[in-house]
Each structure stands twice: as structure tokens, then as C-alpha cells.
């Protein structure tokens, strides 16, 4: 019996681009690991298109040995809609942050969901805009301090955090798959993503997975505080689980 020299990485990952470009403690690497495992298990590497939004998600452009495209901030869903409609044999994944999904690209999310487009959408919810330096996002928690809510998000002035999967649930017709996972529960997250992909493969409809994620850089938290914010604060507000199977 031989001892493995290093931890196994998903086969669909691109080793040449590892270590990846995300900050230490960032949740993106974990979500992309869950996606990579799901892709491996379904053997989708040669028919998957990975499209990333703008924001930290764009740093995933060369993460996989999978054909990929950078789009614009919030515009990943229309690009994939246009692609999938004329190449239905391809399996497409939109990878974006909460700003791209629920703010600047909200009209595309609402309409792609309403049309039940055969897309898989993975949204990293880290409760703020990370790449631009820690501003308030649609998902910033009440009282949470960000660069644009330095005294904490006041719901009265800045609104309540957007519940993405619940929003999609209120719009998407029968056939959609909707779940919220977390990087604190990797096997569950991988299973949600896998089910979303299977949903698309089987042509059932729109599939949507939000994953709670971490941003110690902009949260300005140490490891223990990061874990606490994810597991207590975020999970308290954003309920983890499958919303529609």
C-alpha cells in the first residue's frame, strides 16, 4: 500500500493553475472543489461550459480543464442562454457572486428562471462585494459593517438581505431545482451541485444552487471569527437546504 503524496484534487481541475488565485480562507476554492467533484462523478469534463461572472468569480476562468468564458458583471446568464439554446447538448454552468446574481444581473436571473432555461447557476454568497473592496451586497446582513455601510447595514435605509434561492423559488416554474448549500458542509454542497447538473442533463429545467461562502479578507476576520460568521451569522439568516428537488 502506498501513501498518497498529496491530497487528491478533482480530475477536472487544471493542475497548472494551482495553487489558485483566491485569498487564503476564501470560500471560492471550496465551491469550485465541490463543482469539480460533481463534474468528475458525472464525467462531464468534455461537454461542460464554465462561464464566470465578474467579481472574484472571474478568477476561476482557468481553474478547470474545461472550456470557459469570462462574461460581464451580471451578464453570465444571457450569454449561457444564448449558447445553450443553440447547443443543447452542452452542459453549462454559470458561476457568479451575490452582486452579479441579485443586484446588477437580477433581471437576467428573474427572467432565466421564469423561462426555466436549462442552465445551472452557482452563486457564491459571501455577504459583500469582495473584488471591489468590501462594499455592501444585496446579501449583507442587518447590522453588518462594510465599506459602504460603515456603521452597519440599516434595514430601514438599505433594505433587508436578499434571499436568492427563495426569490428563484417564487418565480421558477415546475421543474426547477433550487438549493442553498454552504462551504461548511462540503459533501452536501457537492451533492446539491450534482443534483443541479443532473437536472440540467435530464432537461428538467432551471437549476440553482447558492452556496454560503467566506471572505476573511473583507470581513477582516481571523479563522475562528470567519467560521463563526459563516456558521452562526450567515447560516442563521440564510437557511441551508434544498428548496425544490
Amino acid at each position: 500500500m502506498s501513501v498518497q503524496a498529496r491530497p487528491a484534487i478533482p480530475r477536472s481541475w487544471r493542475p497548472e493553475t494551482k495553487p489558485h488565485k483566491f485569498c487564503p480562507g476564501c470560500g471560492h476554492g471550496l465551491i469550485l472543489k465541490a463543482l469539480g467533484m460533481a463534474v468528475d462523478e458525472l464525467d462531464l469534463q468534455d461537454r461542460l461550459i464554465f462561464a464566470c461572472d465578474i467579481g472574484c468569480s472571474l478568477l476561476a476562468w482557468d481553474f478547470f480543464n474545461i472550456d470557459s468564458i469570462h462574461t460581464h458583471h451580471g451578464r453570465t446568464l444571457p450569454v449561457l442562454t444564448g449558447l445553450k439554446r443553440v447547443r443543447p447538448e452542452l452542459i453549462v454552468v454559470a458561476y457568479m457572486g451575490d452582486g452579479g446574481a441579485y443586484a446588477i444581473g437580477a433581471q437576467h436571473l428573474v427572467n432565466a428562471a421564469a423561462r426555466n432555461e436549462f442552465l445551472t447557476v452557482i452563486v457564491a454568497n459571501n455577504s459583500l462585494y469582495a473584488m471591489t473592496g468590501g462594499q455592501m451586497a444585496p446579501t449583507t446582513l442587518p447590522g453588518q459593517k462594510t465599506e459602504t455601510t460603515p456603521y452597519g447595514r440599516e434595514v430601514k435605509a438599505a433594505g433587508a438581505p436578499v434571499l436568492g434561492p427563495e426569490l428563484v423559488d417564487s418565480i421558477a416554474p415546475t421543474g426547477a431545482y433550487i438549493a442553498r448549500g454552504t462551504v461548511a458542509s462540503m459533501i452536501q454542497l457537492k451533492n446539491f451541485i450534482k443534483k443541479a447538473l443532473v437536472h440540467q442533463i435530464e432537461g428538467k429545467g432551471f437549476s440553482f444552487v447558492e452556496s454560503l461562502s467566506t471572505c476573511p479578507t473583507n470581513w477582516r476576520t481571523n479563522a475562528a471569527e470567519t467560521w463563526h460568521f459563516l456558521e452562526k451569522e450567515m447560516s442563521g439568516y440564510f437557511k441551508v437546504g434544498e428548496i425544490r428537488q
Binding site: 462574461t71 451578464r75 444571457p78 444564448g82 443553440v86 447547443r87 437576467h108
Partner: peptide, 15 residues
């Protein structure tokens, strides 16, 4: 926006 980006998706797909 969506029409333009979907057109981009179409050409990426080779159409």
C-alpha cells in the same frame, strides 16, 4: 443587454 449577450452566447456556440 440580454439580447446582445445572448447573441454572444450564440456565436460562442458556433452559430
Amino acid at each position: 443587454l440580454s439580447a446582445g449577450f445572448a447573441t454572444i452566447g450564440g456565436v460562442l456556440a458556433g452559430k
